[in-house]
Design a protein around this nucleic acid. Sequence first.
DNA 1: AATATTAGTATTATTTTTCATACTTACACA
DNA 2: TGTGTAAGTATGAAAAATAATACTAATATT
Lengths: 129, 129
Amino acid sequence: MKNNTNIENQEDKPEKKIIFDENSCPVTATMKVLGGKWKAILINAIYHTSPARFGELKRSVKGITQSMLTQQLRELEDDGIISRKIYAEIPPRVEYTLTEFGLTLSPIILSMAKWGKEYRIKKQNGMKH
Amino acid sequence: MKNNTNIENQEDKPEKKIIFDENSCPVTATMKVLGGKWKAILINAIYHTSPARFGELKRSVKGITQSMLTQQLRELEDDGIISRKIYAEIPPRVEYTLTEFGLTLSPIILSMAKWGKEYRIKKQNGMKH
DNA sequence: AATATTAGTATTATTTTTCATACTTACACA
DNA sequence: TGTGTAAGTATGAAAAATAATACTAATATT
């Protein structure tokens, strides 16, 4: 009786047959909105500096390119997270704010910020596990 | 006084000069651990079926390939989120569980699951905003 | 008349992620 | 002797994400 193909084991550990599907997992759904290299930091930035102008975000979010910024802001807008207000001025002025729905992300953003800080500390201390 | 380059406006809306840096934003740090196509659903799956065997995950997480599964599990292990227990049996048996540190992700996972569900509803209803 | 300003767009490259496929190991069982 | 099993590795191809660069509009200021 050296291996696990015996009846005892098979009966002791029946397989749990829950299915996890990309298209129905609510955590994955959230990740589709917050995922990628820039969404989280952008939401965080707008959360802290709202209303945020385009150029202001371009300067404050280090490393982002103009085209990425435009693209990511559009996607967040399409997802109903932020709103875009255009002022009919020259040169143009556009202000971004979190929508009411976007603000419902707050618990996620806050818990992620908290966790991220502790993860940093753990990494600094050598990640002994 | 048609545009915003007048003194009044410049004084009314001074630029907030907070800097958001990829490498120091704690939200981005968390995203590096949870991001990508499979991490969130995997954590969720292990969270619900722990201890989870490799082949069990391969069958329950729909669409994931064997090599992706291996790779993502290794990264989660390297990040201290999950632990891998190998049983010296033939055929092999390997069980994955969330570590104590991995369990500290629970508030994030739970708030993301909750939000994801509401987002789905909003999308179904046509996303009027 | 030339230059600066803001918030973009368009296009092409490069990098990163993900996928598909074939291969491996050690033993049990037919 | 050959086949099945679980948990992988290795390799190259394809797809997706991100970056780099150049361009635009309308007006104000110099």
